[in-house]
Design a protein around this nucleic acid. Structure first.
Length: 200
DNA sequence: CTCTTGATCTTCT
DNA sequence: GAAGATCAAGAGC
């Protein structure tokens, strides 16, 4: 183990209720930057998200409901978890209203709560690599298909509002091949915990 | 640092 | 049969 400074845990904002997510995905996504996501008390500050609207060819919901994406077509404020490349889990927050089928993909966290647990689950020591990608953060937080369709404002999941002002940057989304030009990736300016830097 | 490849689930063609 | 909202490891520079 390499030596590391004693972590100071930032204060949490008030827990976000389900209604917070019942608005345009393009309003909710940038507001989530700086919020804190916890699963059973383990997690960190959201530093990178992407918005997926049902009219967007890159969205899983674009072609209508399937067994995998059905929760996207339900009410806002619930988790949509899916299998990525047959290997990883990725987690979304469902937004807008019933049937809108729009969601925010959580892509990276700055780890703040339960560092030892996350290091154990990821078999990794480097904090910067613990949650710097959508498949990485689900492993660190213990998110699996068992969390699909769970509400975001009840245990084991909690999302706490950000406390101070944050600078949000936007750019094109990552790893997609359709609608690649849409600037619907949002990040915390200057964060060292992104899955990839934003071009300047 | 960049590039390539394998892992193998869900959906679409 | 092929592609995809990914990641880690290995080769090469």
């Amino acid at each position: 183990m390499t030596p590391r400074p004693k972590a100071s845990t930032p204060a949490l904002g008030k827990p976000l209720k389900r209604a917070f997510f019942g608005r345009s995905v393009h309003e909710v996504a940038p507001e989530l930057i700086g919020a804190t996501l916890l699963v059973d008390g383990v997690g960190g500050i959201i530093v990178e998200v992407e918005a997926y609207h049902h009219t967007d060819p890159a969205a899983h919901s674009y072609r209508g409901p399937t067994p995998r994406n059905q929760v996207m077509f339900g009410p806002p404020g619930f988790a949509y978890v899916y299998r990525s490349y047959g290997i990883h889990w990725c987690v979304n927050f469902v937004c807008e209203q019933d049937g809108s089928a729009s969601a925010v993909l959580v892509r990276a966290l700055e780890p703040t709560h339960g560092l030892a647990t996350m290091r154990r689950r990821r078999h990794l020591d480097d904090v910067r690599a613990l949650c710097s990608g959508p498949g990485k953060l689900t492993e660190a937080l213990g998110i699996t298909i068992a969390h699909n369709a769970l509400p975001l404002d009840r245990p084991p999941i909690a999302v706490h509002a950000r406390t101070g002002k944050v600078e949000v940057v936007a750019g094109v989304r990552i790893g997609i091949t359709k609608a690649v030009e849409l600037p619907w990736r949002y990040g915390l300016k200057g964060s060292k915990f992104l899955s990839k830097p934003f071009p300047r």
